[in-house]
Simulated scan of single mutants.
Amino acid sequence: MTTVSMTLNGKKVSANVEDRTLLVHYIREAQNLTGTHVGCDTSQCGACVVHVNGEAVKSCSMLAVQANGADVTTVEGLASGGELHPVQAAFREHHGLQCGFCTPGMIMTAVDMIRRHGANLDEKTIRHELEGNICRCTGYHNIVKAIKAAADQMAAMKTAAE
Rank of each mutant, 00 (worst) to 15 (best):
T74M: 12
L63E: 03
H25R: 14
D71E: 15
V111H: 10
L97D: 04
V24G: 06
H25E: 15
G46T: 08
H37L: 03
L63G: 01
V57L: 09
G54I: 00
V65E: 08
E55M: 10
H94T: 00
A67P: 03
T21A: 02
A90R: 06
P104A: 13
H37Q: 15
Y26T: 03
C99S: 00
T103I: 09
L78S: 12
L23N: 01
P104W: 14
F101N: 10
T103S: 14
I27Q: 08
A30V: 01
T34K: 13
V111G: 05
E29K: 13
A70E: 06
G35R: 04
H37M: 09
E76D: 15
R28K: 08
E29S: 09
A15E: 03
R92T: 14
A89Q: 15
M62W: 05
F101C: 11
A110M: 01
M106A: 11
E93T: 14
H85L: 11
P104V: 12
G39D: 09
G35N: 07
V52Q: 08
T74G: 12
T73F: 10
K11R: 15
A79R: 12
L63I: 02
G105C: 09
E83H: 15
S14P: 06
T74S: 13
R20V: 12
G35W: 03
R92N: 15
V38R: 12
G77L: 12
P86W: 02
E76Y: 11
S59P: 02
V38T: 10
V13K: 11
A67H: 05
A15L: 04
G105V: 11
I27E: 06
Q98V: 02
V38H: 05
L23M: 02
H37Y: 09
L33F: 08
I107N: 06
P86K: 05
G39L: 09
N68I: 10
A30C: 12
M106D: 04
T42F: 11
A79P: 10
V13S: 07
C99H: 00
A110E: 02
N53E: 03
A15Y: 04
N16G: 14
H51R: 00
E18H: 11
V65H: 09
V38A: 06
L63F: 14
V72F: 07
R28I: 10
G77F: 13
V72C: 03
E76R: 11
V87Q: 10
Y26E: 02
A79E: 12
A90G: 03
V24N: 01
I27G: 05
G46M: 07
S59G: 04
G46Y: 08
L84N: 14
D19N: 15
G81M: 11
H37G: 01
E55K: 15
T34N: 13
V13P: 06
V87C: 08
E29Q: 13
C60K: 04
L63S: 02
D71C: 08
T42W: 07
N53W: 01
D41C: 07
M106S: 06
K58M: 13
Y26S: 02
Y26C: 03
G77W: 13
S59H: 00
A110G: 04
V38P: 00
L84C: 13
C40M: 06
V57M: 12
L33A: 10
I107V: 14
G81F: 12
L23S: 01
G96W: 11
G96I: 11
E29L: 10
G35D: 08
V38C: 06
L33P: 04
D71I: 09
V38G: 01
M106W: 05
V50F: 08
T109V: 12
L97K: 00
A56V: 05
